[in-house]
Structures are given as structure tokens and as C-alpha cells.
Amino acid sequence: MTAAQSAPGLSWNVSADLSQLFSYHFMVNAFAAGTIVAIVAGAVGWFMVLRRQSFAGHTLAVVSFPGAAGAIWLGISATAGYFAASIAAAVVIAMVPRSGAGRGYSQESAVIGTVQVFALACGVLFVSLYGGFLDSLTGLLFGTFLGISNSQVLILGVVGAGVLVALAVIARPLFFATVDADIAVARGVPTKLLSVLFLLLLGCTAAEVSQITGALLVFALLVMPPAAAQQLSARPGTSFLVTIVFGLLVTWLGLGAAYFSVYPVGFFVTTFGFIAYVAASAWRAISKRRDSRLALGPA
């Protein structure tokens, strides 16, 4: 009984549940922020998964943790800390030479790993310097949807729109450079510039997503939806749209589940993303078997 009183009640009446969900301003803000973040993360993540740059994306997200922790310690806006740290790390990673389309021998992953672990260590230091509120530590690492202010939603929206517009402008050459770098270079596509621009967009996105899912669970929105969608379709347009739909569903379901339970939002968003990926992989495996059975089938 005590648990039921402390947590909001979930009934079988969907419309009542929904109106209960949106009766609090903080939940409206959480859904607005979640929606923005899901769309931006899906769009940028789709390219990230295609470019095999997941490790870089993870690092840019982890780096946002010391950024936010340092900002809180210094008494400035955590949002500014998120963006400053991720963008700075994106610049560092962009300076590492990258060979071809991720093939060949590159120092990239070693450099990224070094940056990542140092950043994480700095974050721990900042948290203990601040006085070590455990609450803020778990919030930074594993996400929270409580207390997202109107101005935070506005910043997420403005930055998100900027990222989407920039991505739309470079989308096709970026896709070209990702899939077929040799020919893209021969056709005069500025692949190096695109690679730097993309890392900056990825940095902004990682900083955005971190504010909802926490620095460690960014992949829930950045990797899982595109990875699942690319299993389902090899058509670029289709898998891109499916990515956005998955991202939105995962975020909305996760926020709803977190509201009606006592457990953190990061867990739910990640779990729904995981389910989407497993389901997509299973669907692909089944349809592949069906295809090969049809091809080999009894004449």
C-alpha cells in the first residue's frame, strides 16, 4: 500500500492515465525535451551507426558528464557545461587522422578511449569537489526527467533545430562520403570537412541526449533506434524514418513508465530500446531464413 501511495497510480483507463501524466508541468516539459532529443538523436545516430563511429559518440556523451559536473561545481549552468565539454571533445577527436571510411589502421579508437577515461576521472573529481551529492551524480550518469525547466526545453529545441538543419544541408554528401569515400573524394566532395562537421553535430547531440538519459545511457537513443532500424530495412529513407519512430516510441514509453514507477527513466528508455533492437534482429533472422528456404525450396 505504501508503494502505491508514493508512486502515481496506473489504471486500465488510458485516457485517465494520460491526463494524469500531463497534469504536471514538469511532465509536459519532460515529454517536450524527450521528443526533441529523440528526433535529433535518431537523425544524427543514423549516420553515426552507418559511419561506424559509435565509440566516438559514446565518448562525446561521457565527456558531457565532467562538463556538467564541473559547471555545477563552478556554479554555472549545467546545460552550458554539457555542450562545452562535448563540443571540445568533438574538436579533439576531429583532429585525429581517420583513415578512409573507418577501415584500415587508425589510432582513432585508442585516442578516443584515452580522452574518454580521462574525462570520466575528471567528472568524479568535480563531483567530490562539489561536496558529493549522490543524487546529482546518479542524475548526471543515469538520467533524470525531474525538474527540466522551460528555458532548458527552449535551449534543447533551438540547438536541436540547428543540428537538424545543418544535418539536412550536408546529408547527401555525408552519406556519399560514408558509404563510398574513394569515389566521393574523386567527385570533389569535401570528405574531411564533412567528417569534422559531423563530429561537431554528434557532440551537440550527445550533450543534448545526456541531459535526459544521463551520460552513460546516451546510446539508448543514439545507437539503439538506428541499429534496430538498419536491421529492418536497407533503404536509406525507410530506415531513417523507422529510426525516428523507434526513438520517439522508446522515449515516450520510457518517460511514461518512469512516471508510474519509482525507478529511473534511463533504465526504462534503455530497456525499450533494447527490446526494439532484439525484436528487429529476430525479425531479420526469421525473414532471412524464410528467404533462403524459399530460394532452396522444394521445386
Binding site: 546529408a171 547527401r172 556519399f176 563510398d180
Partner: peptide, 16 residues
């Protein structure tokens, strides 16, 4: 077919 199409319009900016 998407890779072939890139030979045609891959260097154009924007999204199809």
C-alpha cells in the same frame, strides 16, 4: 541501387 545513385547526385547538398 543507392550506391549507384550516389554516383549521380551524391555530391549535391541537401536531402533527397
Amino acid at each position: 541501387i543507392d550506391v549507384v545513385r550516389l554516383g549521380l547526385d551524391g555530391d549535391r547538398w541537401g536531402v533527397p
